[in-house]
Design a protein around this nucleic acid. Structure first.
Lengths: 198, 198, 198, 198
DNA sequence: ACGGGCGGGACGACCCGTTTTT
DNA sequence: AAAAACGGGTCGTCCCGCCCGT
């Protein structure tokens, strides 16, 4: 039952959802396609199960971050790279899902959009928290920063995949976070008088 | 003939390659699936045709950029966002391709990897040119910047798609370039008074 | 156990035998398909059970009629219409069975044939009884009348079904019996003044 | 194309619609199931084709009868039995259709109902014509007679089937028509004064 | 004894890319 | 370039057997 979801997760990530047959999933856990259908009444149901489990885990992580609050949470997010490195199937699933869920009439479209919104809103929220608490500069464009962060993470994960997991994902990501945090707090640099329109 | 490639391009981007049947392509141009196969001996051949045409156009653009050279070229690249906004099918195709080409045994994998390398190397090259000509600071990590740029662009394009083309892609991208150029040329940190255009 | 047969009876009549799954039968009585199979070792066995119970009831009715004997029995049969009206599932089952049992290699074929023969022979027997007792004219073609009666009843039941149980089955059937009895007893043609109740 | 419909017609009649696979139909005409699906995009479409062809033929026959008009047409119908004897597949199809179309949510239900109505209305029309022209007694219940006729024909056809085509269908049917016509014109018998309430 | 969980094997329709024929 | 046909394969259904709780 749980192993079926595991296997499906892995295969979906590796070969795409359309590219994965129920028989293939079954084979991984010693079942036939009929056996799989016994537990999930349709392929779509299996996909949902995979997605639901994913969402749940994310929600847990998000909750943690929110409790940390503001800049601390953002600093904490910089480990994202190494987390991805340790769960490559998830990363693959995400990429694949992205493509198969692009068209608005796809059954995954909504999931994807919602997921993106969740992450975006989380980051915006953390930045705002930081601004309120004075940790973060007031003139930061929280929206753009959140969007850029998510974009970078999506993109770099993809590169990591295409490179056959060669590039040092964790390092690259940490560097982005360093730069980001630098942008958020800037004033810190004591003497100068950096100016920039916003 | 050319319209077939057009139609295929559009459909691949909208529904994925696997999700697009020859019959669907044919229908768009008033042919049956057999008719399509008359021109392209197999589906794979049609995919190649679409990809090849794409590559050619890119090569042209790249050549232009290289001629401009260094920082000027990079500045020029900031229009990427509005270009994408005007060719949404291409963007869709890219996203879709990405997912279907992830697994190393996919027929598109190589195309994808090569394409990424090309863009990466182009950016690295431009930065190096800029360093050589003194326009760009010496301590810039060309590799990381190129990678981050490509990642951001891939990621933001995806967001644009998921948002139903709502977000202001061109603006967001220009902002990233502003920041990037800022990083590349920032004349030394010590002497304050950083200034820069918007 | 008995409710399973009930449920099966109903469903077979409504959706056909092939069109009814064990799971559907089970659902009606709060069982899974496996549960049903615990009581009836195969679907065919369940069908048999339904049919057997049916036959038994009919035999009872037939016995009654035979005891009445001759014309009286035939007059008694005219209530057939209202009986059918009150047991629509049975009627449905009969129609359905008819169709699924047509081909000689069907498992129900024999049941059907035998059932038809039983009814036919019953009517022929009753008519003969009537002839012997002088109630019925000697020149009646018992065979044809029996066949025609059964045909009419089968046919009118079908119409009743197709009309969504709208037509007045009982009335129509009674009318047929009136006419039939009229034919059976019509005292010689020559002396005029034929009279008869409605 | 036309042979596919032929084969389907035959098989549907012999084994039922649900009991007939596309592969079986194909086999009869030297095709695979896929081959059949090339000509009829779905099984349902094939069924429709069979039904449509049937309807068309019937319409032709009906038109003929209407042109003959009144009693003449009814007399003409008495050949129905021998027609059926010569087209046994059609008869089988009709019986089978009946059963699979009983439930109101079946795709054939409407076809069945309409077909019945057509025949019924035809007969009623002919009787009315006969009444208008004076050939037929005025107090005949056209509705009941039409219904009874159709019922008898449906039923006797079924018996013919179940008997393995043994009974003399044509003879039996002609006899019914003789009786029917007798009922319709009755007065004819010169001397007597047959009376009967209606 | 009863009944469900689980799984499979056979088969259903239908789809898709492709070859062959016209 | 359409028409015809096919082979391979996908999801899904159905009946049924095996084993396990109660």
């Amino acid at each position: 039952m749980e192993d079926i979801v595991d296997a499906a997760h892995k295969l979906f990530g590796a070969r795409g959802i359309k590219g994965t047959t129920l028989a293939a999933v079954g084979e991984q856990v010693g079942l036939t396609d009929a056996g799989v259908l016994h537990h999930f009444s349709s392929k779509q149901a299996l996909v949902q199960a995979v997605l639901d489990r994913e969402l749940e885990q994310q929600i847990g992580q998000v909750r943690e971050l929110i409790e940390l609050g503001g800049l601390t949470a953002i600093r904490r997010m910089s480990v994202w790279g190494s987390v991805v490195e340790q769960t490559p199937e998830l990363a693959g699933l995400m990429v694949v899902l992205t493509a198969e869920g692009i068209s608005a009439d796809s059954p995954f479209h909504e999931y994807l959009v919602r997921r993106y919104e969740n992450v975006h809103d989380l980051v915006v929220g953390l930045i705002r928290q930081g601004i309120d608490s004075g940790e973060i500069r007031e003139d930061v464009d929280a929206d753009w920063e959140a969007s850029a962060l998510v974009a970078y993470l999506d993109g770099i994960r993809l590169q990591w995949f295409l490179s056959g997991r060669q590039i040092a994902l964790a390092d690259a990501v940490e560097r982005y976070f360093d730069q980001l945090i630098d942008r958020l707090v800037r004033e810190a640099q004591p003497p100068p008088s950096g100016r920039r329109k916003e």
